[in-house]
Amino acid sequence: MLKEFVSLYQNEFQETLANIDVEKLEQLCRLLEETFAKERNIFIIGNGGSAASASHWVCDFNKGVSFQRPKVKSRFYSLADNIPTITAYGNDTQYDDIFMEQLKVLSNPGDLLISLSVSGNSKNLLKAQAFGESQKMITVSITNSQANELKSGSDLAISIPSENYGIVEDCHMYICHVISQFIAKK
């Protein structure tokens, strides 16, 4: 039974990877490189597994891309990492504000905000994105292939052509690894 499931999952994952819009990945790569060059901040957000992926992006870009390369200053921050801050905002305001309130304190115009989401409809991501737009931040979303609010409000929307949450989250990491390794090898 497991063998059949593994085969089905692998087939869907490979098909999904084959159908990711590489031009959008190139656009994201350019945005990241421009943001590094201008020494602007990059904030990444997500919930659940996407929050864990956001932390992994920070590691791969801050260490993997910048380590021993003094000309590349990756200023990547996951707003899902500071549990005391998240719980304070969640308790004192509402959970929907946990990322937006951090952006109010940390962000500047021209910074980059990347939202990782399976559904693309999480209120805390949407509020952060709306705030980012109001502050002239550049917004990127990486979500599933369905129409969703996050995608429709992003400056750059990358659609993962799958409805399987595991495959969408796998692709979040695939995109991180492809782009960070590409930049690191330049």
Rank of each mutant, 00 (worst) to 15 (best):
S50P: 02
S7I: 00
K24F: 10
F131V: 04
A52F: 13
K24V: 01
A54I: 09
E23W: 02
I179P: 00
L125F: 08
L150F: 02
E26C: 11
F131W: 15
Q146A: 13
I45F: 07
G110Y: 00
N148V: 03
I142W: 12
D155C: 09
S117F: 08
G166Y: 08
E101P: 03
A54F: 07
K136Y: 08
I86E: 08
D97C: 15
G153L: 15
G110F: 06
A80P: 06
L31P: 02
Y9A: 00
I114Y: 02
P109D: 02
V65R: 04
N121L: 08
L116N: 00
V178Q: 10
S117R: 06
I20D: 02
E12H: 04
N91Q: 06
Y174G: 06
F61Y: 14
Y95G: 10
G46I: 06
D170L: 04
Q27S: 11
Q68A: 07
V58H: 09
E34T: 07
A147E: 13
Q129I: 11
C176Y: 01
S66E: 05
G49E: 03
A128N: 11
D155I: 05
R30N: 00
E163M: 10
L28Y: 14
F13V: 09
G166I: 11
K151C: 12
G48W: 02
I158M: 13
S53G: 08
A147L: 05
G120N: 03
V140M: 01
T35D: 01
I83A: 14
L112V: 05
E163R: 04
L103R: 10
F13E: 08
G49Y: 09
A18H: 05
E33K: 14
K151E: 14
R69D: 08
S159E: 14
E12Q: 15
I179A: 04
C59W: 11
S55H: 10
S122G: 08
D155G: 15
F36P: 00
I142V: 14
V105Y: 00
A88V: 15
M173G: 03
V118Q: 07
S115D: 12
N164P: 05
D97K: 12
D92L: 09
Y174V: 13
V58M: 11
L125C: 11
T16F: 00
I142T: 07
T139D: 09
K3F: 03
I158F: 11
A54M: 08
L150T: 02
H56G: 07
Y89D: 02
N124V: 00
I179E: 06
F182E: 04
K38G: 05
K24A: 09
M1V: 15
S55M: 10
Q27G: 06
E169N: 01
E101C: 13
V140T: 02
G120W: 13
L106N: 14
R75M: 10
F61W: 10
F76P: 05
F13Q: 13
M137P: 07
I175P: 10
N41E: 06
T93P: 04
